[in-house]
């Protein structure tokens, strides 16, 4: 269980990290919190000639509210997201999901950008990014570009970033008004990756009509899945018109290729997913009502 040899480069800034990635080419990999990469290196599932460390890069850490957007720098550790007053006031869904990520020892080092760039299908942060329509700010020697969350996650552990690009920051839209957020997941033990889970966001108008909503599932397929047809049914309906169970059924109907393996047949995983959608949706509605 020892990683293969590599050369170590501690980046001084985001630009320095991008330069190192550009210069070193495909044999280089970023290391942020190391909570996914270090195990994969130890098990020799992957090996790289060069690791570029961004865990101490000051301009890759920090949380800022800019009008209607919350900007979280990629190498901000989960624990700072969990404890941030700005986050809970702006994008409380992040505050709700963070305690579900692994254990506190993992969240002390793991970073939000690492989780999103790693793109594990069962991870919580990617689902939040997809549900809220976050924008990924990506940096390379060629410049900066924004990628919409809907176009970012392309499959298990893969994103639409190029290998010389780094995720610089994640821009989350702030929902305000009569809004509520919910998360639910089912895992064998607290801190394990979920078998399936869901996040939900809702905005109600003064007449308790659903004026905006979003639901995303995780763990159900190769990438987070937005429940678009469930959302279109809900939009414009009154609270309670469509039952949470029906929302769950509609949501899983959108999943084209559910994960299917010997331990967890697709039918079982989908029924877990439907029930987590129902719970997350109910929680979101309750919060919007009483928020």
């Amino acid at each position: 269980m020892k990683p293969a040899p590599f050369q170590y480069h501690a980046a001084n800034s985001a630009a320095d990290a991008a330069q190192l990635l550009g210069d070193l080419g495909d044999d280089a990999k970023l290391i942020s919190g190391g909570q996914s990469l270090a195990p994969m290196l130890a098990m020799r599932l992957v090996r790289f000639d060069h690791l570029v460390d961004i865990s101490r890069v000051a301009d890759l850490r920090g949380i800022d509210r800019n009008n209607g957007t919350l900007i979280v720098q990629a190498a901000t550790p989960d624990v700072l997201v969990e404890r941030s007053d700005v986050v809970v006031a702006s994008v409380p869904l992040l505050t709700k999901v963070t305690p579900l990520i692994g254990h506190f020892q993992i969240r002390n080092r793991g970073t939000i950008g690492g989780s999103i760039a790693h793109a594990d299908p069962a991870a919580e942060y990617p689902a939040v990014a997809v549900a809220l329509g976050a924008q990924m700010e990506c940096l390379s020697v060629r410049g900066t570009r924004m990628i919409d969350a809907a176009d970012y996650f392309v499959g298990i552990w893969s994103t639409s970033m190029e290998s010389d690009e780094l995720l610089k920051a994640i821009h989350f839209p702030v929902w305000s008004g009569r809004v509520g957020f919910g998360v639910a997941e089912f895992a064998r033990r607290h801190g394990d990756f979920a078998i399936a889970g869901a996040v939900a966001a809702v905005e109600l108008d003064s007449g308790n009509v659903i004026s905006r909503c979003s639901i995303a599932m995780f763990g159900v397929s190769g990438q987070p899945e937005r429940a678009l047809s469930a959302e279109s049914h809900l939009l414009g309906s009154s609270v309670g018109e469509i039952s949470p169970e029906e929302v769950g059924r509609l949501a899983i109907a959108d999943v084209e290729s559910p994960s299917d393996d010997a331990n967890m047949p697709a039918t079982y995983r989908m029924s877990v997913a439907a029930s987590t959608v129902a719970t997350a949706w109910t929680n979101a509605l309750t919060e919007a009502h009483h928020g």
């Binding site: 269980m1 020892k2 909570q35 270090a38 195990p39 130890a42 690791l51 865990s55 506190f104 080092r109």
Partner: peptide, 27 residues
């Protein structure tokens, strides 16, 4: 386990409990 699961290697680093098997000494 040497891959972050068992917690036997937990230490304090700059005041926070972390897995010492998931940090490289150079970091």
């Amino acid at each position: 386990c040497e891959h972050g699961v068992c917690g036997a290697c937990t230490i304090f680093m700059d005041g926070e409990a972390v897995r010492s098997c998931l940090v490289f000494a150079v970091q």
